[in-house]
């Protein structure tokens, strides 16, 4: 079976992420503090206006959205740009390029391991907690299935964006700057810090034409919007699929051009 050789990389990723247990603890603690601050901030914001629902979102909706968005963020964070940038700078990338498997798929399967781990460690507990605290504000039904499909597509979109940004490092030799630009843009325009429903009309239209909102906003909408028609759900997934294909194409093309330029000093 062809998949088996790839799952070996997944396993290696899992084992590696288990090495850093204390970091998982600090990350969870940091996330917890972030959630507390977000909670009070939005509570204060909602307390300052008369209407309970703003832009179609109540305080509870906003909170659920933001909590799950931050959990999704921790789950999808792959540090791919850092890994690629560093292995380009140190020259380790040569060893990865020599492997009898395309570099892109090697990195994908390798990072899938740590993604799987953080899904179990951060996202699942958070989602269960939200479900219990809100006493079932998340509807359990067919939407879960669409959500899972949305998450997988979002993972791919996120991966290809990271791959494109990582490839930029071949040209620039700057990791920090390139990575921070990517992070800032993705976080803002994906709706991870502020729900996209709050954006002013023009900005929302602009955001709609970008791939970033398909990473966090789409899966979350598939999960928490009640009574979404099947047609609308499929439409959201199709848009995601469109971005997967486009970004895959761009990343492949960009990589093939860039790899010819790579220079590694000795080693």
């Amino acid at each position: 079976m062809g998949l088996k050789k790839y799952l070996t990389f997944t396993r290696a990723g899992i084992v590696e992420s288990l090495q850093f247990r204390s970091s998982i603890f600090v990350t969870i603690l940091g996330n917890f503090i972030y959630l507390i601050i977000t909670y009070y901030l939005w509570k204060a914001i909602y307390a300052s206006v008369d209407s309970k629902v703003i832009n179609g979102m109540s305080f509870a909706d906003t909170m659920i959205y933001l909590v799950l968005a931050s959990a999704l963020f921790y789950f999808m964070e792959v540090y791919l740009v850092w890994d690629m940038g560093r292995s380009i700078q140190t020259g380790k990338i040569v060893l990865d390029l020599l492997k009898p498997i395309p570099y892109q798929s090697f990195m994908f399967w390798y990072s899938s391991g740590s993604c799987l781990m953080s899904f179990i460690i951060t996202f699942l507990p958070t989602a269960v907690l939200v479900y219990i605290v809100t006493k079932g504000a998340i509807h359990l039904g067919i939407n879960l299935l669409f959500f899972m499909a949305g998450v997988v597509l979002a993972l791919l979109i996120n991966y290809f964006i990271n791959l494109i940004v990582g490839t930029i490092c071949i040209h620039t030799e700057s990791i920090w700057g390139v990575n921070i630009m990517k992070e800032v843009i993705v976080l803002l325009f994906s709706g991870a810090t502020i729900p996209i429903a709050f954006f002013p009309e023009k900005l929302r239209t602009l955001v709609f034409y970008m791939p970033f909102q398909a990473i966090y906003n789409t899966p979350l909408r598939l999960l928490i919007t009640p009574n979404m028609s099947r047609q609308e759900r499929l439409q959201l997934l199709l848009i995601q699929l469109f971005w997967v294909v486009v970004l895959y194409g761009i990343s492949k093309l960009f990589w093939n051009i860039s790899i010819k330029k790579i220079t590694v000093n000795g080693g």
Partner: peptide, 29 residues
């Protein structure tokens, strides 16, 4: 190149921080 890109990255961070601040206050006076 690294210096210029890092500087642009820093400006991005500030602009994005400001946009999220501004978006919130578009909805809440």
């Amino acid at each position: 190149a690294d210096f210029i890109i890092s500087t642009i990255g820093m400006i991005f961070t500030n602009v994005a921080g400001f946009i999220s601040f501004w978006v919130v206050f578009q909805n809440f006076p």
